[in-house]
Computed example of a mutant assay.
Amino acid sequence: MPSTKKTLHFLSSALVTSISVGVMGYCMSTQWAETTMECTKSGESFTNGSAVITWKLFVGDLNRYYCPLFGYTEEFEVIPKLVKAEEVASVVLHALVLCLLALCLLCSACSILISLYNSVGNPYETYMGPIGLYVCSSLSACFSVLALILFAVNLTVTSMAYKLVKITTESVQADLRNMSTEMMLGYYLVLLYSVLSLAAIALIYMYAHAAYTHRREQQRPTEDAPKEIMMY
């Protein structure tokens, strides 16, 4: 049976990782960003309207205010709408973001299982020991940061926001300019998920370092013994 100290460290790691999974689950269901742009009727210079797109991972909301005429509100599914707008690069990047977040959840699940296994057993030298947890939690943190980067690039570098507004104005064409994007709660919660994944690693590293130090102290070379004892 593992020691009480080991059990507490690994159970704490499992708890922290479980919290991170809950954070990830919530952030995947809430708003990630809001894109705003000025809008006028094509050929006019006076700006009297705007378009606002609120992004979630799977659905979004488009609100046009006098852009170019009157108001318009639509809830849309992100990937099908991007396909309709013929934004191939945006579809690929958004699909990659979803895949990376799914991999984060898978790696976190593995980390929880490994932590629980180590809290009741001693597979210390195998891939089911601390090394396995280091790998899974590190991958979770790396995948989540990469997903954040790809999501931000997709919003700021590609023209998907412009295209989505353009295809809803139909026959009355609009001029769009001065686009700005603000990241929202869902986006920043992924950073918290990354921090919690690293915290799970830190908890196990603290235990592993303490255990290594304890073993070194027990295996002190004989030259550290008193000379009168060595004579015998």
Rank of each mutant, 00 (worst) to 15 (best):
residue 2 P to F: 06
residue 3 S to M: 05
residue 4 T to E: 06
residue 6 K to Y: 01
residue 7 T to S: 11
residue 9 H to L: 07
residue 13 S to Q: 06
residue 14 A to H: 05
residue 18 S to R: 01
residue 20 S to K: 05
residue 22 G to V: 00
residue 27 C to I: 00
residue 29 S to R: 12
residue 30 T to S: 13
residue 31 Q to W: 06
residue 31 Q to K: 10
residue 33 A to H: 01
residue 33 A to W: 02
residue 34 E to A: 06
residue 34 E to F: 00
residue 35 T to S: 14
residue 36 T to H: 10
residue 37 M to N: 03
residue 37 M to Y: 03
residue 38 E to N: 13
residue 39 C to A: 10
residue 45 S to H: 11
residue 49 G to D: 05
residue 49 G to T: 02
residue 50 S to F: 03
residue 54 T to D: 12
residue 54 T to R: 11
residue 57 L to C: 04
residue 59 V to Y: 09
residue 60 G to F: 05
residue 62 L to Q: 11
residue 62 L to D: 04
residue 64 R to Q: 13
residue 65 Y to P: 00
residue 67 C to F: 04
residue 68 P to E: 03
residue 73 T to P: 02
residue 73 T to R: 13
residue 74 E to C: 06
residue 77 E to H: 09
residue 77 E to K: 13
residue 78 V to A: 06
residue 79 I to W: 07
residue 79 I to A: 08
residue 79 I to V: 13
residue 80 P to E: 05
residue 81 K to G: 02
residue 81 K to I: 00
residue 81 K to V: 01
residue 83 V to P: 02
residue 83 V to T: 13
residue 84 K to Q: 15
residue 85 A to Y: 04
residue 88 V to T: 14
residue 89 A to Y: 07
residue 92 V to T: 09
residue 93 L to V: 07
residue 95 A to S: 15
residue 95 A to R: 11
residue 101 L to Q: 04
residue 103 L to H: 00
residue 103 L to A: 09
residue 104 C to K: 01
residue 105 L to D: 11
residue 108 S to Y: 00
residue 109 A to I: 13
residue 113 L to A: 12
residue 122 N to I: 10
residue 124 Y to D: 15
residue 125 E to F: 02
residue 126 T to C: 02
residue 128 M to R: 10
residue 129 G to W: 03
residue 130 P to C: 04
residue 132 G to D: 10
residue 135 V to P: 02
residue 135 V to Q: 01
residue 137 S to L: 04
residue 137 S to P: 09
residue 139 L to G: 08
residue 144 S to E: 10
residue 148 L to V: 08
residue 154 N to P: 03
residue 157 V to N: 10
residue 158 T to N: 09
residue 160 M to F: 12
residue 163 K to N: 12
residue 163 K to I: 00
residue 164 L to P: 03
residue 165 V to S: 10
residue 166 K to S: 15
residue 166 K to Y: 07
residue 166 K to T: 12
residue 167 I to W: 01
residue 169 T to V: 09
residue 171 S to E: 12
residue 172 V to R: 06
residue 173 Q to K: 11
residue 176 L to N: 03
residue 177 R to E: 09
residue 177 R to Q: 12
residue 178 N to H: 14
residue 178 N to F: 05
residue 178 N to D: 13
residue 181 T to V: 15
residue 184 M to D: 06
residue 186 G to W: 06
residue 188 Y to H: 14
residue 193 Y to Q: 11
residue 195 V to L: 14
residue 196 L to K: 08
residue 200 A to L: 04
residue 201 I to N: 14
residue 204 I to L: 02
residue 207 Y to E: 11
residue 208 A to C: 10
residue 208 A to H: 05
residue 208 A to L: 02
residue 209 H to W: 05
residue 211 A to N: 12
residue 211 A to W: 00
residue 211 A to K: 12
residue 214 H to A: 15
residue 216 R to P: 01
residue 217 E to C: 08
residue 219 Q to N: 11
residue 219 Q to M: 10
residue 221 P to F: 02
residue 223 E to A: 08
residue 225 A to V: 03
residue 226 P to I: 07
residue 229 I to Q: 11
residue 230 M to C: 05
residue 230 M to I: 13
residue 230 M to N: 10
residue 232 Y to H: 11
